[in-house]
Design a protein around this nucleic acid. Structure first.
Lengths: 115, 115
DNA sequence: CTGTATCCCCAAGGATACTG
DNA sequence: CAGTATCCTTGGGGATACAG
């Protein structure tokens, strides 16, 4: 119950305004696969095909889209190796790693209080 | 980087299966207004009309829906006062309060790393 | 005051095919 | 291998009206 909860300062993210940082944060990591992507990348750098395997339930299109947004937000780094066939590796940026502790806590919370 | 990250144990929530607790937690608090609702309720018990005022951008239908789900998940308590006109108060349950520290951290993270 | 019931629309996301 | 382009479907959520 810290007092970092004032709602006076509004946040702006992607043209949209957020009353509190909570919604802004959820806008960044709350995408359908984003949290999971970040979590996996926190363990190791992954190629696009690695991510495809991990998220076998999703399409290339969705995966690409989510990765692009994470990249735009500065959480993920995209490294393209100019070779044929192409090789692209995704990894967390320094900023990206700062969100991981929160994801870890969400994971722990679920284990403790869900099901 | 704790080692509470095994993905062997799957979570089940609302008929759906989640590989890791992160997605399960997001399913609980990631709804469009849920995180904000929880945060406001952590400050004080609120009547339905109070919440309507806070979330002037949403409809009664949505608000009711989100509150019902939070209630079903055991995070929010709904107290109905049998009187006319009706009075209904919403508050956090003990379980509901356990998620607040995570929301606080999301708020802090946004302030630190967004915008 | 605190909801529920209906209708309706649009954009998120899936399937599929094509490309450098 | 790592994407884009296109089409198409679905259901989340808004608007509105009604109700206890």
């Amino acid at each position: 119950m810290q007092e970092n909860r004032e709602k006076e300062d509004r946040m702006v993210y992607r043209e949209k305004e957020y009353k509190c940082g909570i919604d802004a944060t959820l806008a960044v990591v709350g995408g359908k696969w984003k949290a999971s992507i970040l979590w996996h990348l926190s363990q190791r750098t992954m190629r696009f095909s690695d991510l495809q395997r991990q998220f076998s339930g999703t399409t290339r299109k969705m995966l690409t889209q989510q990765l692009r947004e994470l990249e735009t937000d500065g959480l993920v780094h995209r490294e393209v190796y100019p070779q044929v066939p192409p090789k692209v590796e995704y990894s967390l940026t320094a900023k990206g790693t700062t969100i991981i502790p929160i994801l870890d806590q969400m994971c722990a919370w679920a284990k403790e209080y869900l099901q």
